[in-house]
Amino acid sequence: MSLTEDLDLILETALPTDLSFRQIERAVIDNCISETRRYASEGSIEAFLMSAMRLLALPQNGHTRLIPNDAISVLPLRFVSVGRSVQVIGAPPGITAPRGKLIAVNGATLSQIEAIAEKFLAGTCQRKRVIGPILLAWPYALTRLGFSSNSGTTEYRVQGENGQITNLKVENGNTVPGSMLYPRNEHGKADPAWEPQTFVEFKDWQDLGLSIALPSFFDPSESALPKAISDAADHVRACSDKTLLIDVRGNTGGDFLLTMPLIDAISQSASKQIVVLVDKFTFSAAIVFVAILKHRLGNRLKLIGEEMGDGLTFFAEGGLLDLPMSGAVVRYSSAFHDWKNGTSDETTPADIAQQIVPAGELNLDRKWVARPAVEDAHGAFYQRILKGMNG
């Protein structure tokens, strides 16, 4: 048994099924396959993984990618994209690390590293910012990209909130499992093991309005989300005279069809202005949720935050492949979605095609990247937004 079995799974299932590969010249695909097969034959797991990442990133369809997190070891630092920067926001217990903005790695600036790493990362610029930081903690990736040191350590330059610069050196052999610090579905929270405690969080801010946080549309039980959405719809109808704030930051998706009762309630009942908070960690079904609301509400809906993690025309559905030899996971697509123009094709599931609308461009009405530890504390961020809407 060898890594070639993992590659065969990719070639037999992901590439033939995923229509986004039809946009790529066959010679380009074959060149990447050849490189990946060579590393597989050599038994070099990390080299194989990065080559497979490059292969699956070719269509720049963010729903299709190799996820190495479960198969690799990383240096004990958690990096997360905040706005346009990368922040050091965490480390395992017992590891002392400065918090702040990452300035350089082994003397190379972040912009230098990101320019070289781009071809290994799938999707839009925003999705690359979501999934890319793991490369900064993966010693092999830094070597492959050409940014390793010769000392057996990796040196990070970090700028704290007070402007002070700290140089942090980590031994390359001091690693932890990648999934310990980098979850498969990156949500941007300081705690990589974070999971939503509830599917809907209400808060009545009295005269300011009502906030509804929707952290996820993924419900393994298939019963908790519909109940929460139904309760939220009832709440919206009962508070139809209030300004409404909806927060889908960090919502990586799930099943948007289960959210339609809430969309209907907002569209039919909310009489005042509505604002939706989004960020680069807003993906898939959460983007569709926003698109349908924008189509129905038009200028009554305002988008605040930063660009979401994907565009409105993409390939989705599909499935997951567990690669038994390397331990990595492949996500691949099978269906076309076009929420920009409101079109579908024969690959689009019928129940989704019935809901597709031409949402046009989801342009931000106001850019605002909140600092979770500060502005989200005690709802301060929500209150500032609502006050601005009512002012």
Rank of each mutant, 00 (worst) to 15 (best):
V276F: 02
V276Y: 04
L277V: 04
V278T: 09
V278G: 02
D279F: 13
D279T: 10
K280Q: 15
K280W: 00
K280F: 00
F283Q: 05
A285V: 04
A286E: 04
A291F: 07
I292M: 11
L293Q: 06
H295Q: 14
H295G: 06
H295S: 13
R296S: 06
L297S: 07
L297G: 09
N299C: 09
N299K: 15
R300I: 01
L303R: 08
L303F: 12
L303W: 08
L303K: 06
I304F: 14
I304Y: 15
G305Y: 05
E306T: 14
E307H: 09
D310H: 01
G311E: 07
G311F: 07
G311L: 07
L312F: 02
L312S: 06
T313K: 15
F314K: 07
F315H: 15
F315V: 03
F315D: 03
A316Q: 10
G318A: 11
G318E: 04
G319H: 11
D322S: 15
D322P: 01
P324G: 01
M325C: 07
M325Y: 08
S326G: 13
A328L: 08
A328H: 05
R331Q: 11
Y332N: 01
A335F: 11
F336L: 12
F336Q: 05
H337L: 02
H337N: 09
D338M: 02
W339V: 05
